[in-house]
Amino acid sequence: MEGVFSWFDYMSSRTDLIVGGLSQTLVYVVLVTVAATVTAIVLAIVTLHQAFAKELVLAISSVFLTIPSLALFTIFIPIVGLGFTPSFIALYLYAIMPILRNTSTGLDSVDPSVLESAKGMGLNRFQVLTKVQLPLAWPVMLAGIRVSALLTVGISAIATLVAGGGLGDFIKSGLARLPLPNSLEAIWTGVILSLVLALFIDSLLRGVGRFTTPRTKKA
């Protein structure tokens, strides 16, 4: 019980730091998710009819996910310096794969007879894509976007190690000062706020899904 009280004390005396960390993480999540979504959808569409290119792009994006986060965050420092940019690049590279894979899968899983009839009625390729394939693939694509957004919340805690800010700051400073006073409270702050942010973003995207998924049944 005492721990919880001291954690509240810790938080309430540092609201500006908390708001700062939280909003920095949120900025990462929003920017990274948007950038990765655009990239992944463009890549999936461009490689739609080229099996080899599709596999290649997927393989490359998967390779990024296997690189340890610490390495990926630091690898760009010589080129772009410390702070926001190397963190953004690393998170962006991580976030592409789930969206790309789901977009490809979603586009591929559209019933071939639906595509055949669309083409047979004289829809051109662009119309088939925008009126048939993308709407039908959207629920699967959105599932990928959700995974990437959550991934970004979690991994963005590493950004603190390259001076990228965010909720990771609390965890890092807590770990560095352990077992001094307030060190544990700092770690808890970082962890729990990340968790809350993740839950919030997930339910937000679920709501987006409910509103944007095309209906296939009369209400």
Partner: peptide
């Protein structure tokens, strides 16, 4: 070809109605 197809009705076995 799209111009042509709009002038010709086309029905296939699996129908291929747009589910959405």
């Amino acid at each position: 070809p799209n111009e042509l197809r709009r002038r010709i009705g086309y029905v296939i076995q699996q129908i291929g109605l747009f589910p959405h």
